[in-house]
Design a protein around this nucleic acid. Sequence first.
DNA 1: GTCTATATAGCGATAGAC
DNA 2: GTCTATCGCTATATAGAC
Lengths: 214, 214
Amino acid sequence: MSTSVAAANRGRPKDPAKRTAILDAAKRLFLSGGFSGTSMDAVAKEAGVSKLTVYSHFSDKETLFSAAVEAKCHNTLPEPLFDLDVSIPIRASLTRIGLAFVELIHSKEVVALERLMCAMATQDPQMSRLFFEAGPQRTLNAMENLINRANEAGLLATPDPKHAAESFFSLLQGCEHMRTLIGIREPMTAIEAQPHVERAVDMFLRANGPERQD
Amino acid sequence: MSTSVAAANRGRPKDPAKRTAILDAAKRLFLSGGFSGTSMDAVAKEAGVSKLTVYSHFSDKETLFSAAVEAKCHNTLPEPLFDLDVSIPIRASLTRIGLAFVELIHSKEVVALERLMCAMATQDPQMSRLFFEAGPQRTLNAMENLINRANEAGLLATPDPKHAAESFFSLLQGCEHMRTLIGIREPMTAIEAQPHVERAVDMFLRANGPERQD
DNA sequence: GTCTATATAGCGATAGAC
DNA sequence: GTCTATCGCTATATAGAC
């Protein structure tokens, strides 16, 4: 009642540039240091503002964390990648998607985000849900649609497109991605990715190619 | 020089039961709360001893953490599981391994450990290395050996046993394991695991079965 | 008596809230 | 910038084994 809209806009307006600077700083620090490993002091310092300014834009640490993570969750493969071109071999289409996927999941940003989501599992699974639906789930859906269209075009003969999409990305992840996640190897380079993707596509086509024997 | 063996054993001996209690408490708390999320006070309380007792057994927090993690790292599948029985169909052998693997990686203990290793990636990758070599790497090696023996027995025709082993476990992990890791679904039940494993074995045999066409 | 494990209390540093 | 809670860690004191 007492806090009317008019009252809320009184006084010196908040600087949107500072809000952006705070959010950017929070994104960097939370992603690399996690929730408890990042202090509000550090965020303020990184953003070049006072701690009070941080609290004036974001009521508490949890709110700032949520805002930072949400802004980082939209890591997906470009949609045009999943536009099926029936005039080129399906193997080429799958290889192109595979290479882009491997590059994505080995990017510094996605690796850091996945690590953070593992940490959030025991604290706030709602945040993980947000991430998964904004990122991986969209990619899975796009792949399933592509498989359906390839089936209709006779390029594939996949009995179960949903599980086929999951198996394709599982193969692309492989064991190397887990090694990268836990920090015992560097992210895959493009040179390393090529044969890895070819093996995954090979296996996928053996199970789902048009010449498959049932 | 001055601290001889005789001198070290003089006086009131440390209670081994308390050391065990401290380690057990540390294992529980560190695995669920992580390093910075677990206080030495909490460990002392959980173990039912004073904080100084904790420090008398483990010189500092890092040492206690290492001891707790090392004690938890030996999660592997039983070795007899990988003894190839050439008298039963290879599909049955693979299914048995697959079910055990899925059950293992969806166990509370392993999920918590993997989450912890993700958090350690940015802090102490040496710990992750320890975990991977004590656990997953052993399983990968055992599988590679089994594939080699199956090849010799004519049960499989796998051109690249090492990569085949990795692809097998990648398929078994699937997307559901990532969902479990980030906390957006419950671990897979045995009922759910059965068809999942069958699909993975199907795909593996299509690529590596003796009747494969090159 | 001598040595050491354990307990209580508290130091210094740092975090988050305001 | 101030306040308070809490962290890792420790100085002092007590209890127990030889």
